[in-house]
Design a protein around this nucleic acid. Structure first.
Lengths: 226, 226
DNA sequence: GTATCGCTCGATACACTGTATCAGGACTGG
DNA sequence: CCAGTCCTGATACAGTGTATCGAGCGATAC
């Protein structure tokens, strides 16, 4: 049989060049689009035109994929500023903005210790910019701001989701939960809560985040200038 | 055929008397023992001697089961104290203690808005005890403490798990991660981080939680007495 | 007392998950 | 040119949350 008639060997699809980087980016794309539940190894692999098992060459476990995702968004978190206070504000804002861009971050942040290179780099620039402040204060100060940010961001995203799930905006939300709360309040068992909901301030998300952050920073400042 | 020879109708097992309460308690038992991943509808049902589908009469979705679990532990959170500061400390401690008893709480807390009766009751006693403080301050103050507590508890539990997973105590943990950090530091890219780890303070969990909380409370106090 | 209705129960089924195993083929070292 | 190694991806397994639906019971209507 002449060469000309021989079939070419079947083009086996050029094995897509893979890397942890590409895998993580694909996972992030999926999570951004459809939430963390949409991140399954099969879907990530599909996104890359590859069999699911292929991924295990690069990541040992789904958990480490999630860790890598978190570390990857820390790329976007490089706070700067003049003086410790500005830096901590920048840190808090950067994390919050990242969580706005990647809502799934709220589900993961604080859930496991992060020691990835980007997270460490982010910590490095913060610590480096805290110049002048005594080490015994720096550590708890950064820790406190981080803790506050984690909690505040989680709550903010949780509320945003609840609103979105039940119609559209804050008004819609009140329409949905309002009657429930009315019924609860009608029992008379929650007078303090009731008066707060009725007469309390209605801060928007930005203000509310910033006010809490200022509490933390003022407390730190009090200690520094003691 | 005589009656005597007729087989009794098969004793259909007396349907276990069920209730949301019993289901939630079973789920909490499982989660306490083996972590949140051990809470599957099948296992919960099994624990109650019941088919999985039976549960859907009481709970629409697994998510609401988780919500109910969180609300159930808020039964244990009824902070009291003299004056707003004591109350907020009591709140923070109560949540932290609850998370120590139920580590899975760290995975859920802050993840979805909580409007269950026990959570509301807990909020009620806090607000009721904040007497004297102006409404415009009470709301952000409680919110800030809650946010801080959520973040701090998450981090604490995350660290505890990491330690447990890698041997036993804090010493063992340093043995495991120490070399990794050494290698990282050897790159010279993280000088500030390095000096903090080497020369910074080593607070234990209680101190660290309390210090951060004090920052928040001091910040609030500054605003109140302004 | 009997027939019918409605409802509750739980078996079965489905689509999907993370991951262990392993046969086959491609590539590399001798 | 051959042997051995390694990588790849198919297959398989145990488990998940939940939709569907037939069978059986208890309550209701005559």
């Amino acid at each position: 049989m002449l060469v000309w008639e021989q079939p070419e060997p079947p083009d086996r699809p050029t094995p897509a060049p893979l890397s942890r980087e590409r895998i993580v980016q694909a996972a992030i794309r999926l999570a951004d689009a459809d939430g963390l539940d949409a991140v399954s190894l099969r879907k990530v692999a599909g996104e890359l035109g590859v069999g699911p098992m292929r991924l295990y060459t690069y990541i040992a476990t789904k958990e480490v994929l999630l860790d890598l995702m978190v570390d990857a968004v820390y790329t976007e978190i490089r706070p700067t500023g003049d003086g410790w206070r500005e830096v901590l504000v920048a840190l808090a804002d950067a994390v919050r903005q990242a969580a706005h861009r990647h809502e799934w971050l709220a589900d993961l942040i604080g859930g496991r210790p992060q020691l990835g290179p980007n997270t460490l780099a982010s910590g490095e620039v913060v610590l480096a910019a805290m110049g002048g402040v005594d080490l015994d204060t720096v550590v708890p100060a950064v820790a406190a701001v981080n803790a506050y940010v984690i909690g505040a961001v989680r709550r903010e995203i949780a509320e945003r989701r609840a609103e979105r799930a039940s119609g559209m905006d804050k008004h819609q939300w009140q329409v949905t939960y309002g009657p429930y709360l009315e019924r609860i309040f009608a029992t008379g068992r929650f007078p303090a809560l009731e008066s707060v909901v009725r007469d309390g301030p209605h801060l928007d998300a930005d203000e509310s985040f910033r006010t809490g952050l200022d509490f933390v920073l003022d407390g730190i400042e009090a200690r520094i200038s003691r």
